[in-house]
Design a protein around this nucleic acid. Structure first.
Lengths: 346, 346
DNA sequence: TAACGGTATGATAACGTTAACATTATTGAC
DNA sequence: GTCAATAATGTTAACGTTATCATACCGTTA
């Protein structure tokens, strides 16, 4: 669904019942102004009072209301960033699609990117969103840790997870059908007659990488351990992984790379070794990023539509904001057969 | 510079002097509540009153204070989006770097992406930022129109432009040295002995595209019109552009593509025509995107560091917020010579 | 001892909006 | 022509902070 802009919604009980500075003050036995001082100018408060206040804050789980602060101070500690939409693939592509869809529905986006996906970092970001009074949260979580940390910190706010990890049924989520996609890749290769199929996986903690590697393993009658090489999504890692596969005493006849970037590295490695693709080796990627149709040769891959993913995430969030029950969605993948796959020649 | 988080700054005179609902009400001769109604529930107000109020609003340039609205309603019409940093190149890479740098300095980011870069769209976005009470605005503007519209709508807020267009000296800006970069590309090719160098440009309205094409033209003694082909940044456009260049009666010996994606398309076209790179044709790209070192052959290109660009933009914004004078910065480019360039063989 | 300066705290008033209720015109029915 | 219902507007009170000024208390000095 795609809802038209609407007036003020009424689903912010969470915000309504949140403890206020006055509550903290009452519990600590001081005035609310002293609480404010503890927050903004700690040295102005005596050590004993400060501790009392801090204890009250943690006891109540108090969080400052940033709208009130902005109203009175006139500044928000927020900067606006304006950027053109260029990237269509990956989490960033999904984010841009979410933003476009949000704005079309009368919402705006507060964005934070995470380097580590560690519990601490995710928690800090999500807590800020809550402090800011957001009407909802969409998290594009690549790891189970990030996913769990989001739920933990979201404090009952409407939340949609974009992930292929495990999500409780009470929370909406969207995923791209990772298993189905990986199965399509393997079906293409097995359908051509390949039996010795190698896999270059993403990082082990990554949910997508895990799903794709798992399917690779399950699709093979007798998966050989040395046909699985771990990469890190970069073309370079694909290059080196391919090199190591080629140096095996019995190399594979096909390589399934967990993303297109690594597949590019594979293509280059094969080219350097004088091997023809797809004659001497078939290669399948994953993602269908921009440029996948212009590699040499054009890459057979599994398309993930991050635009659709982003729009779906926003739709689910709107549903949640309107009080509809949570649900899980799956976006299908599409096999895109180009010129990097053929039947094995030996 | 990279400043540590600091307490409330005092540079929001703009916000302080902004007209309020009461001002509008006074001018229109109604109560402030009626103004509120015109904004939130127009049919509840008679046509004549509504018009008076709307006139007063435009006369004063009134804009609703979103912090106050959020405070009283409990919802913000903002959603939080959490995403992992994957993209390093292009405007999106710069945006992610800005966000990381902002957060490291105690700021948060409200983000909007623009599809069209039209005045209307840019104005709407920037106005929202102002309404939201942002402490500053960073705009990554690819066109002069977007740049001008940003300045027009920024209403005196601290602004930093990330662009290679024309910026008034009173506003801070960062650019990547487009001319220098293009000159490096041309120097590489001319240094190898090429004289018939073609250029595949970006879209004409794009500032980067314009700068690169201009340098191409100026670098040649006698630039032939038919050696300039217009692309649209996509690999496909590079592919077709290369095909058209190859069908010339006197084809070039080298191609300077305005970005790496188009260069990939060029490589594929040459490969299909059975031409060896760099023996039969040299190719230079621009950007040094991820994967440029794994094309076939690895691409000679001009590196733009969007991370540095983003951090510099945030630094300039912090300077502006602290009241320091505006200044312009230029980030240098770096030639990355790989295997797609050589002396002409004929 | 009185006056002083500094420190720690409290009381009260903004900030600019929307919510809730009160009031005043306006209309229509009988 | 009166009354009730409705439409249009106004009045007042929140929302949760920070800013400003006032107060109480302490130790020091003349």
């Amino acid at each position: 669904m795609s809802t038209t802009p609407h007036e003020i919604t009424s689903s912010s009980e969470a915000a309504r019942t949140m403890p206020t500075m006055a509550d903290v003050a009452a519990l600590a036995g001081v005035s609310h102004q002293t609480v404010s001082r503890v927050l903004n100018n700690p040295p102005a408060v005596s050590a004993v009072t400060r501790r009392k206040v801090q204890e009250a804050i943690t006891t109540l789980g108090y969080r400052r209301n940033l709208a009130a602060r902005t109203l009175v101070t006139g500044n928000s500690r927020i900067i606006g960033v304006l950027v053109s939409t260029t990237v269509l693939s990956g989490p960033t592509g999904a984010m841009l699609a979410i933003e476009q869809s949000a704005r079309a529905n009368g919402y705006w986006v507060s964005m934070a990117s995470m380097k580590t996906q560690a519990t601490h970092e995710v928690g800090e970001i999500v807590s800020h969103f809550v402090d800011q009074g957001v009407d909802g949260i969409i998290a594009v979580a690549q790891t189970q840790v990030a996913l769990d940390a989001t739920l933990e910190a979201s404090a009952g706010r409407q939340t949609v997870l974009v992930t292929s990890g495990h999500v409780p049924p009470s929370v909406s989520s969207v995923e791209i059908a990772q298993h189905e996609g990986a199965r399509q890749a393997m079906t293409i290769l097995k359908g051509l007659g390949h039996t010795r199929i190698a896999h270059i996986s993403g990082p082990p903690y990554d949910l997508h990488a895990g799903a794709r590697a798992q399917v690779w393993k399950e699709s093979l009658e007798d998966p050989e351990a040395n046909l699985l090489v771990e990469g890190d999504w970069t073309p370079q890692s694909g290059y080196y992984a391919a090199m190591s596969l080629l140096s095996l005493s019995k190399p594979p006849t096909a390589i399934f790379a967990a993303n297109d970037q690594m597949a590019f590295g594979v293509l280059r490695a094969l080219n350097e070794r004088g091997m023809k693709v797809p004659l001497d080796m078939s290669v399948v990627g994953f993602d269908d990023i921009e440029g996948a149709d212009c590699s040499i040769p054009p890459l057979t891959t599994i398309r993930q539509d991050n635009q659709v993913l982003g729009v779906a995430a926003m739709d689910l969030l709107l549903e949640a904001i309107h009080g509809l029950p949570a649900r899980q969605m799956t976006i299908p993948t599409h096999a895109v057969i180009r010129s990097s796959t053929a039947a094995p020649s030996h």
